Simulated assay, not measured.
Amino acid sequence: MDLSKESLLNLNWSDLSWFQHFNTELSEETALAYFCQIGNPFYDRSSLNEQIYTRNLPVEAMLNATGIEYALIHRQDPVLYIIRKHFREGPNELRPLQEYYILAPGHIYQAPDAASVISHRLLTAVHHFGKAFDEASQRAAYHPSSGYYWKTNNSSDELIKKDSSKDKALTNTQRIRFDTIFHNYHERFRPRIPAGTTTQTAIPPSTTNNETTAIAGGDTNLPRKEERTPSDSQSTTSERPMIEVKKQKTQK
């Protein structure tokens, strides 16, 4: 059976009828024989163990042979037995290839390597992080009057009703933001007065209401005040004492 490495990691094989056929249980003596069955997808039929079983050779014959070999390396009666697959290159030269777990009552699993464990845990962490970010993005909400807030299952409808009110006062944060933005735009788009131009003088406060309304309306045909010459001003000032003298004579 040709199976890929990924499929073997997700595979579980067992043949509990084997124990009933031989009237035995899973133990240290039967663990390796139970693993080395033809129907086991984890078992390589070209191994040295298969040659010994088919040719009925002693176990010592594998010491000087070269090839794939299966051996029991650890046991924890009666629940766990570990079988190692290694390549024998001589009597004392063994190169480990893979390990397998046998769990009671007879389920066999392939032990993953370090790269598979790390990659699986990284993929699991990334999956949960992405799920958490998706959940957080759905819970986050924003309203111009109240800013950002988190929606919950119990208070989401109430927050939406409260935030929908138009007469709600602005918060301190929103006032600061508005003042900052308004100041920046005011500095950027301030009207520039070209150099050399004369500015208009302000209207004196002694002007009448008619003059101010006419100026606001753009009417330039206003009645002008009569201009007085220096001679006219002297004549008026000289006439005042004479009038006062006449008044004093009449009173006498």
Rank of each mutant, 00 (worst) to 15 (best):
I108F: 02
H128D: 05
N92D: 13
F133D: 11
G130Y: 02
L122W: 11
A132K: 07
I108D: 00
A115G: 04
A125H: 00
P144A: 11
P96Y: 09
R139T: 03
L122C: 09
N92R: 03
R139L: 05
H127V: 07
R139V: 00
D134F: 15
I118A: 12
Q98I: 02
D113I: 02
D134C: 15
S137C: 07
R139E: 08
Q98D: 04
A104L: 02
A140K: 11
L97D: 05
R121P: 01
A132V: 06
T124G: 04
P96G: 11
Q110H: 06
P91K: 04
L94A: 05
A125L: 10
A104P: 00
F133G: 04
L103W: 07
E135I: 07
K131D: 14
F129V: 10
P144E: 09
E93Y: 06
G130A: 12
G130V: 11
S119M: 13
L103V: 15
Y109I: 03
H120E: 10
V126I: 13
A114E: 14
Y101G: 01
E99N: 07
R139I: 00
P144D: 12
A125N: 01
A125W: 00
L97I: 06
R121G: 05
A111W: 03
A111R: 06
R139M: 04
E99D: 12
E99G: 03
V117C: 14
S137G: 03
R95D: 14
A114I: 15
S119K: 10
S116C: 07
L122S: 12
Q138W: 09
Y142Q: 13
Y142N: 10
P144R: 08
A141H: 12
E93Q: 11
Y100M: 02
S137F: 09
F133I: 12
H128A: 10
I102Y: 02
V117G: 10
H128K: 13
H143D: 10
Q138R: 14
Y101M: 03
H143Y: 08
V126S: 15
D113T: 07
S137R: 01
A125P: 00
L97G: 04
S119R: 08
A115L: 10
Q110M: 15
P144G: 07
Q138V: 03
D134I: 14
E99V: 04
L103R: 05
A111V: 15
Y100T: 03
P96S: 14
F129N: 05
H143G: 06
A115D: 14
I108K: 00
I118Y: 06
H107L: 15
Y101W: 08
Y100W: 01
A141L: 05
Y100F: 14
P112S: 01
A132M: 13
P91F: 03
P105A: 12
Y142E: 09
A140W: 06
H120D: 11
A111M: 12
D113Q: 14
E93M: 03
E135M: 13
E93C: 02
